[in-house]
Design a protein around this nucleic acid. Structure first.
Lengths: 212, 212, 212, 212
DNA sequence: AATGAATGAGAATTCATTCAT
DNA sequence: AATGAATGAATTCTCATTCAT
């Protein structure tokens, strides 16, 4: 039915507005009225589609997580059979316009910070993390096998994940000043240290490159 | 004067209560009344000492940042002349009981997430970051010189910082106390990849060690 | 649109309640909750329509001033061409049920007394005063011309205005409703002294008539 | 005992500070802490000497009223036997630096406006009014007798009193811009209209004199 | 489905009063 | 006598939720 599409469209509109408002006002400063205004919708729609503020936030987190999961699976699949290439593709995604837009990063950090107080937030965040860690562990394991090296795969995979997380926090803190290209280079420097012979991510000239 | 000490003591009491309440309820759920109750003080003291909730939070952030700065300088100084040792000492600190207590990490992630909405938060967070990056850049530079290696120091230093940040987010999400040891190992794996010949942080047996 | 009318109606309801509460509790004792209760409305409507207590008070003052200005213009126009008659009509208005109701006088004295502390109050009070002085100056000038007398018009006009103001303070202090007739007589005695031959306001028997 | 003098001195200090704070912040905005600060005294003294805010205000009103009564009696006595002279002396007093200082006028208007809500205020204000009306009625009666005229003494006396009151409100509204000398002239114009042959208050050139 | 006015519980803030020193 | 920290009731303001249209 058309109304189902319409409903999904309204929900997405409100979720995007929620992300935008979190970015602008913080989760502390988020008010339902602002979300409605940012979505260009009337006050009552929010409770109509989401029943309560809490559920709106949960739906927002779930939307972000599902989006990431789908995009990562797709990026890996599209990168071909090489584990190194797939690793590079996921990193590319992690700092892409679509996934690492400033508003989305702001929303992520907000959900992380409220995770202790809101078990439902924590659950979804941990779930995503777990999937991501499993993916990068597998890719890293295969990539090391490809390059014939032995290493502490689990910790290097964890390290890679947390490096990305830390870079997102950095992007959150620096705002427009920090750039996502530099973030990718930091990740590549990490991987280059592991795979000295094989340039990961390719497009970057090797050796010293001016920082910042 | 004794009353000045007393005042400082009260302020510290309230700041510690603020951190505890953020950890328990999140910054979104923090109410001044809870802070007062957690500190075992009456409602009015909060506005008496901090005038407003906003200033209480700012003072809390500043307290955390100043504490970190002092502790890092002290840890580096106490570690002797070797840059590698100093690097190890700072990492030890980064995941110590004192600095990386779950409550404090909860507070840090909260401040990061509100940084876009509250410029004063951002300012202090960036300030701290800058100092930390400068320190680890210097140490990493010296450490690489000691070990006779060349590398992209700036990015590796940035990587180390962001890795720590990411691990803090991980600690926030997972919560368990035991994780801090594993977090140190992840950092050491990162450094080991850079300084293969010199075991950094020493106490850990090299090679495979099952994670989790 | 009907809702605009409805909104205007709600605002008027709240303004009238404000005046009633000032009369009963003083401006010092005025609480927003009392205003809402007096209007038979819920607490939230007040901030809904006026945003803050301060603006509610400002709107109240403005309502009173605008009401006076309109009534005075109307009264003068209705009194015919004679300046003496117009003067009498305005004085009649100044002590009429509509304009000089005890609640309104209470509100006026409250606004006067807060004028130093609240520039917006002062501004509107002075504005009204200026208009009233200009009107009575003109009427008095014409009236004296009609009766062929010369006098210090400006000061007599100022005196007439301030006499009215002082009588309002008297009404505020004494409170009884009946006093308003006596107040008119005091004004007429003032005018009679200026226009001995032409009884101003007419209805009162001339000569000694002990009040009280 | 010296301490009694000291106590009276402290009370006076606080009362004067109260008047100053009313003038600056209005009665609505008066806080005990500000009074203490304005008096250069500590917070606790206020409750020490006056027990409560309410009593402080009452004492302030009583102080002003007593001061006026004493000054009026003294001024009349000093003016010699002529009723017209005494009338002039009292008017002079009514706009003198000592009695009609802007701060004191601000306090008076505040007390008038709160009179309906605070019976103790009303009582003292009415008491003072009554005394003043009685005095001016007597003086006006005698003055008319001296000048051989007949008139509606009670209403003219009431008018004179209310004229003064209205002029005080005017001084309150205009602040520094309105001047007390002009106020005296307005009163004299009023009296001149009553006693055309005898210049009252003397020092002013008769006839047209530019206002403002 | 959509609107947005109305409600009122909740939280921050203010400030008179108290009281230990 | 004097101080000023501490208290907590009272008040304003905010805003999620409800509901009549």
């Amino acid at each position: 039915m058309a109304s189902e599409q319409h409903s999904a469209q309204r929900r997405r509109q409100l979720i995007e507005a929620t992300i935008a408002v979190i970015a602008r006002q913080g989760l502390v400063g988020l008010r339902v009225a602002d979300v409605a205004a940012a979505a260009g919708l009337s006050y009552g729609v929010v409770s109509f589609y989401f029943k309560s503020k809490e559920r709106l936030l949960l739906a927002t987190l779930d939307h972000l997580a599902a989006e990431y999961e789908a995009a990562a699976a797709e990026a890996a699949a599209a990168a071909g059979p090489s584990a190194v290439d797939q690793l590079a593709a996921v990193l590319e995604l992690d700092f892409s316009d679509r996934i690492a837009a400033p508003e989305k990063i702001a929303a992520w950090t907000a959900f992380w910070s409220e995770s202790r107080a809101t078990p439902a937030f924590r659950k979804r965040c941990v779930e995503l993390q777990d999937g991501f860690v499993a993916l990068s562990r597998r890719l890293l394991h295969d990539a090391l096998a490809e390059s014939g090296r032995r290493a502490d795969v689990d910790r290097l995979a964890a390290g890679l994940n947390h490096l990305v997380t830390g870079l997102w926090v950095e992007l959150q803190l620096r705002g427009a000043k920090a750039d996502r290209e530099e973030a990718k280079r930091v990740c590549r420097a990490y991987l280059d240290a592991l795979f000295p012979q094989a340039a990961v991510g390719g497009s970057e000239p090797q050796g010293r490159a001016a920082a910042e």
